[in-house]
Simulated scan of single mutants.
Amino acid sequence: MRKPRVFVPDDFVSSDDYKLWYSEMETKNNYESLYGWIYLGADAKNKKFAKIGLSMGDLSSRSYSSSNPNYYLFCAFKCRHDISRDRLAIIEREILTKIDELYKNRNGSSRRMRHYESGALSECFESVDFFNFFKDLHSEIYENYRNDFVTSEWWEDHSVESEGSFVDCIFNPKISLKEKNTFIRMILQYE
């Protein structure tokens, strides 16, 4: 998966007002950047599996698994262009901890999977409702890390007023536009 580059005309940037120029350049840099993502992986045959990960590079290397051919990148949430690897690693660790607390079995044990040999916690979860997991992940990013991510506004039927906002994300190319819109509606935040 690769986010398409956005063409921004040269006259988009206003040189008369340095604050406006800076704001426009930050917006342009954020939307054109291909680096800095928190992603959600899924399994095409196991709808109760989810994986949270980070990438500072091209998402295509995260969209497959040599050990699991059914694994794919469901979506990726776009970070600001100037986020550091260290900051993104902190965010990922904190999100994994928070989501781990949300997804417990009835006996209180975690639904977060462990690596077989080492026993260390992995980034993968089992026995989850994937779409609720998706909404919870977005909510955690939006509520606690919004300033580190690119956000977008959603308008229904091209109305003038915004209906809500969400953390900008791209979806797997196999997901139809209709499905993408459904998923975006699931995560809209109203203020």
Score class of each variant (00 low, 15 high):
E24D: 09
F166S: 00
E161P: 00
I95S: 11
R112F: 05
S15K: 10
E92C: 13
E179F: 03
N46Y: 10
S15L: 07
T182L: 05
E153H: 05
C124R: 09
I184N: 05
E161M: 06
L96Q: 05
E140W: 01
S55P: 11
S60N: 13
N181E: 14
S152W: 03
R62N: 13
S165N: 08
H115K: 14
S159F: 06
E191M: 11
D148S: 15
D10G: 13
A89C: 04
N144I: 08
D129L: 06
N46S: 09
E94N: 15
R2M: 09
I187S: 03
K174R: 06
S176N: 00
S118A: 11
S23T: 14
F74S: 01
S165V: 10
G57I: 00
G53N: 08
Y71N: 09
R185I: 01
R114E: 05
F149M: 09
E143W: 05
F131Q: 14
I91Q: 00
I52C: 01
I90F: 00
L88N: 04
R87P: 00
S63F: 07
N147M: 09
S159E: 12
T151C: 02
D168E: 14
L59Y: 07
Y22D: 02
K178L: 05
S127W: 05
W37K: 02
R87S: 10
L34K: 12
Y103F: 13
A42R: 08
E179N: 07
H81K: 05
T97Q: 10
E153D: 11
D10V: 03
E94K: 13
Y35F: 12
T27P: 00
D148F: 14
N107K: 13
M25H: 07
